[in-house]
């Protein structure tokens, strides 16, 4: 095959997929903001996405905070700047690590589950059945999941911020012999509202990305069990990539001089 034609085919496929996702996102947002709302579905998704993701987000941010304290201590010791550990931990956790790690963990846990559940509903004709039972599948399946993702991920990240800073504190005080009150004082002195808020805004965007990708790939899955498997993989991979890209764009918009 002509190499130029191959490149062209890849580019066309990329733009086709982008267009499809954009149309799907537009339809999803339309159903998010227009009645009727399926409150039972929304409640179920809030619990699934938020409550059941709490342990995995808590563990991830706890150990990340602990490792961050250890690593920054050993690095800064070369420049006799060990005193900056608390500020590095709090800024890194609130601005970057908590939202990105929570986003990635939720993508693995929730995005995959959404793609598998909706994909199975697609291949077993349950989505077609919804359409015959006076129910718009986008409104019943997709809108509640997106609302749940956008609302709960910031809450998870807020909790993750606190647990991550606590992880740094535990290592700093009990492993590296920092003074407890000095560590806390330095943490408070350096963290600003923008640091926390930027992380929460990122979390809401990542929640949208994860649920959108989970729903999109599940909704468009084809071909039985294999199709559902592919949809699940694609949901996680595309969520992870988009989270990292969006993280850069948001960081630029919040913190670039």
């Amino acid at each position: 095959m002509n190499p130029l034609a191959s490149i062209g085919a890849v580019v066309l496929a990329f733009f086709t997929a982008t267009g499809r996702v954009a149309i799907f996102a537009g339809r999803a947002l339309y159903h998010v903001v227009t009645p009727p709302m399926h409150f039972r579905q929304m409640l179920r998704q809030l619990v699934d996405v938020g409550y059941y993701s709490l342990p995995v987000v808590a563990l991830t941010t706890l150990f990340s905070g602990m490792v961050l304290a250890l690593q920054s201590y050993t690095g800064f010791a070369r420049f006799s700047a060990e005193g900056a550990v608390a500020s590095v931990v709090v800024l890194s956790m609130t601005r970057e690590l908590a939202p990105v790690l929570a986003g990635l963990m939720v993508a693995g846990r929730v995005g995959a589950a959404m793609a598998a559940e909706i994909g199975t509903m697609r291949v077993t004709e349950q989505i077609d059945a919804l359409a015959t039972l006076s129910t718009n599948p986008m409104k019943y399946l997709v809108a509640p999941r997106i609302i749940a993702g956008v609302l709960t991920l910031p809450l998870l990240v807020l909790i993750g911020d606190i647990i991550g800073v606590m992880g740094g504190y535990l290592v700093g005080v009990y492993r590296l012999d920092f003074n407890p009150s000095a560590y806390i004082q330095q943490t408070w002195a350096f963290v600003e509202t923008l640091d926390v808020m930027s992380g929460l805004v990122k979390a809401a965007v990542f929640g949208f990305i994860v649920t959108l990708m989970g729903c999109y790939h599940g909704y468009n899955s084809r071909g039985g069990a294999q199709g559902v498997g592919i949809a699940t993989t694609n949901a996680v991979v595309s969520s992870a990539i988009l989270i990292l890209v969006a993280n850069y764009v948001l960081t630029e918009s919040f913190f670039s001089k």
């Binding site: 509903m121 077993t124 004709e125 349950q126 077609d128 059945a129 359409a131 015959t132 006076s134």
Partner: peptide, 19 residues
């Protein structure tokens, strides 16, 4: 579409029950 689908019941091949 809603009006028309409201007149129709459908039994799907695999049942398509919501599990």
């Amino acid at each position: 579409r809603n009006t028309v689908n409201g007149k129709i019941g459908m039994l799907f091949q695999g049942g398509a029950l919501f599990d």
